[in-house]
Computed example of a mutant assay.
Amino acid sequence: MSTEIRVPTLGESVTEATIGRWFKKPGDAVKADEPLLELETDKVTLEVNAPAAGSLAEIVAKDGETVAPGALLGHIAEGAVTAIAVPASTPAETAAKTPAPAAPPPSPAAAKNAADLGVNVH
């Protein structure tokens, strides 16, 4: 199944836009709402976000082309991205593998205050 990528509504008086550049190329993995391309109008530059997750299957409108609101820009193939399996670890395993950071030495003022109060800061 594929999802169409279309030019969004550009504003009341804006009738066309130019494709500035695509951030992705065909075959690249995309996440839902991830910026895919940049559109430039006479008033504003805006990003078009992915309407779904998957992979960029096709670019219909190339960099530099002029497009109207609603025009087809490309397609996203849903579910075509293969995920890399990463073994899950529990928070306890992660904590056991991660050494605790060394405590910074106390400032001279903090060391004096601790000494005055009889607290060992080491």
Rank of each mutant, 00 (worst) to 15 (best):
W22H: 01
A53Q: 03
P35I: 10
V30M: 03
N113I: 11
V48D: 02
N113F: 12
I84K: 09
T18W: 00
L117N: 06
E78Q: 13
A109R: 10
L73A: 13
P8R: 09
L72K: 05
T66G: 10
N120Y: 05
T45S: 14
V7T: 05
A115D: 05
E47A: 15
V30L: 02
L56V: 02
T18D: 06
P91L: 15
P8M: 00
A103H: 06
A83T: 15
S89L: 15
A32P: 09
E38M: 07
V86M: 14
G20F: 13
V7R: 13
T9S: 14
T98D: 04
K112T: 13
P99D: 11
L39D: 12
K25R: 14
A92G: 10
V81F: 10
T9I: 09
E78L: 08
D116E: 14
P87H: 02
A17K: 03
A32I: 06
S107A: 04
A102D: 03
V81K: 06
T94A: 15
D33R: 14
G70S: 04
V60E: 05
P87G: 02
S2E: 13
K112W: 02
A71T: 12
K97Y: 04
A29K: 05
N49T: 12
I5T: 03
I19A: 03
A96S: 09
E58P: 11
T15I: 07
L56C: 05
T98R: 02
A80N: 05
E78R: 08
G27P: 00
K62A: 14
T18F: 07
P8S: 11
D33I: 14
V30P: 01
P35S: 09
A95Y: 14
K62I: 09
E34P: 02
A71N: 14
P106Q: 06
P26S: 01
A57N: 03
G74Q: 12
H75A: 01
L72F: 06
A50Q: 08
E40C: 07
L37D: 01
A100L: 07
A53Y: 00
A114K: 13
G54D: 07
A52T: 03
S107P: 04
T82G: 10
E58W: 01
G79Y: 07
E40A: 09
S55K: 04
V86G: 03
K31N: 07
D28H: 08
N113Y: 13
K97D: 05
N120A: 03
S89R: 15
V14E: 10
N113W: 15
K112Q: 09
A110I: 01
W22C: 04
D63C: 08
V14I: 15
K25S: 10
A53P: 07
A61M: 12
A29C: 00
P106S: 09
L72R: 03
H122L: 11
S55C: 01
A57D: 09
L37E: 00
E38W: 08
I76K: 03
E38P: 11
R21L: 13
T41W: 13
A102F: 03
L117V: 04
V30Y: 04
T98H: 01
